[in-house]
Design a protein around this nucleic acid. Sequence first.
DNA 1: CCATTGACTTAAG
DNA 2: CCTTAAGCCAATG
Length: 116
Amino acid sequence: MEISIPNKHKDFFQNVYDVVRLIPEGRVTSYGAIAKYLSAPRSSRMVGWAMNSAHGIPDVPAHRVVNRNGMLTGKMHFSSPTEMEDRLKMEGIDTEKDKIVDFKNHYWDPSEELSI
DNA sequence: CCATTGACTTAAG
DNA sequence: CCTTAAGCCAATG
């Protein structure tokens, strides 16, 4: 009989979700960092695509994922246009014009913190 | 199969 | 600091 072949991209998506769940409170990371941690440094867009499918996935702090510039590019995809910055504010992260203040100080790199 | 799009990134002006 | 252009990979039409 045939064995159910799991979709590769599904694993990738789950892997992204897993990494996002590991982001500590009050910390943020970038799509590229996650992609790099997944051995796909050129697939930063795929991370964003995975997050787009993350709707309905519990325990996935998507608000802690921003672009390389510390800009809240994904804020528009939240339930409310201010939900992302509001959540970050709640965790002690300030934002200025959709950009995280002192971004590098809050930056969290999975490849570094998780020791690969 | 080809064209377009996207929660990205880097480089150049 | 902001805008454009190009590169990049997968999903979608």
